[in-house]
C-alpha cells in the first residue's frame, strides 16, 4: 500500500452491535492500533497468523491508554501483548495479566466482514 487510505467509517452509531472500524489491510501485522468505539478506547491487534484480537486500550498499571502500542508475541501458546509502560504482559485472548492474574483488561468481540474489521463493545 503506498497511499494513505482511510476507511470511510464513523466512530459508530448506537443500536448496531457491530461497529465497522477500518479495512483489515490497514492493520499492520503483529502491531496494534487504537480505535474509539462508542466512547471506549479499544486496542486492535492483527497477529502473525492473521487472527484479530480486541482488548481495552487502557493499561491498568499506569492508567495510560497505550496497550495498542505494545509489542505482541506469545507466551507458551498464548498470544500476548506487553504494555509499553512497564512491560506487564496481557493475554490477547482473555485480557488477563499473566504477570499479575488479579489484573485484566476487558476483551471485545472482533471480526472481519467484507474486508472491514468490526468490533462490538455491547
Amino acid at each position: 500500500m503506498t497511499t494513505v487510505q482511510k476507511a470511510q467509517v464513523t466512530p459508530g452509531n448506537a443500536g448496531e452491535k457491530w461497529v465497522p472500524i477500518c479495512p483489515y489491510d490497514d492493520l499492520i501485522p503483529e502491531r496494534g492500533a487504537a480505535a474509539l468505539v462508542r466512547g471506549r478506547q479499544v486496542a486492535l491487534f492483527r497477529a502473525f497468523d492473521g487472527r484479530l484480537f480486541a482488548v481495552g486500550n487502557r493499561d491498568p498499571f499506569s492508567g495510560a491508554y497505550v496497550i495498542s502500542r505494545g509489542i505482541t508475541g506469545t507466551r507458551g501458546d498464548e498470544p500476548v501483548v506487553a504494555t509499553p509502560m512497564h512491560k506487564q504482559v496481557f493475554s490477547l485472548v482473555t485480557g488477563v495479566c499473566l504477570d499479575d492474574p488479579a489484573t485484566a483488561v476487558p476483551t471485545y468481540p472482533i471480526r472481519v466482514t467484507n474486508g472491514t474489521v468490526e468490533v462490538s463493545v455491547e
Binding site: 508475541g73 506469545t74 504482559v89
Partner: peptide
C-alpha cells in the same frame, strides 16, 4: 513461538 517484548527488540 512468536517472540515477545524481550527478544523482539
Amino acid at each position: 513461538g512468536r517472540g515477545c517484548d524481550v527478544c523482539k527488540p
